[in-house]
Design a protein around this nucleic acid. Structure first.
Lengths: 140, 140
DNA sequence: ACCTGCAATTATATTTATTACAAATTGTTA
DNA sequence: TAACAATTTGTAATAAATATAATTGCAGGT
């Protein structure tokens, strides 16, 4: 199964994922990659994103609103989604904490727990400022 | 906005959610509620599930594989998804830990963090046993 | 350099998931 | 119980993701 052949398209997709922090959806990746590969198909993008995720070269993030998002950063880290602008930000916690969360969960579950994802909710700096201006127009 | 009118359909959906621990998808809820309301429409199920989630009377769980799932338990708790059978189980951690995770995240994010969801991955007891039998048939 | 096999891509179709809308119905209030 | 508003229904539309058949293109061998 490790029989992956090189492909420019997949390489470009990975390249793009690694150089952006916007956690794009498959469709966003498609629109972007199209510029270099005008006739790449959306199916190819989906397949390669999932391939990369399966091989551990990308992360798939599911959110309750909107389609799945992808992240080229594969080291252990978390995500914060802004309730306001819906942007997804990276967030890192100490390795210790990450592991201790798994351990803690394992102790309370009738089975094994080996990993987890966390999606935090909040408001990003941008939107905090924006909201502040909206509510206090005099401040402008 | 708190202008919600009573409806049998919504009541039945909530009732069902509260009495199952299987974390059903909208479609599963639909198939089940259909028995009592043979001509309920799928749209009604979706709208009410989202209404309930918005009002905090249910929780919407997004997973990377398959559609969103819903949970009638609304107290703070987490979920473990079995990599094998894909079932979703409830998992509770101390209130302290839950809050400390939020606080920790807030300290590392340029903005505010007020809540989070965790999806744990592992293998449930059932599947651990099943796999064991598959690999060591003599044990049967 | 040129076959050749196999994996990847493309283009298209299909499935699945979800939302939108107009008409009919039902719950609530006076 | 009449009227108003929110809800449901049935259907259509959109969005998200996967499947498939035909074609392309990389990699190894001659």
């Amino acid at each position: 199964m490790a029989n992956l052949k090189y492909s420019r398209q997949r390489a470009a997709i990975k390249e793009y994922l690694c150089h952006t922090t916007e956690h794009p959806t498959a469709d966003t990746v498609y629109l972007h990659i199209r510029e270099a590969f005008p006739n790449i198909s959306l199916g190819t993008v989906y397949r390669n994103l999932n391939l990369l995720a399966d091989k551990g070269e990308a992360i798939k993030i599911s959110t309750p609103d909107g389609g799945d998002r992808f992240d080229g950063r594969t080291d252990l880290h978390y995500h914060v989604i802004c309730r306001d602008c819906k942007r997804v930000y990276d967030l890192e916690l100490d390795e210790q904490h990450i592991q201790s969360i798994n351990d803690l969960a394992g102790q309370h579950f009738d089975g094994t727990v080996d990993s987890h994802t966390i999606l935090f909710y909040g408001t990003c700096k941008n939107c905090l400022n924006k909201n502040c201006l909206d509510k206090n127009p005099k401040m402008r």
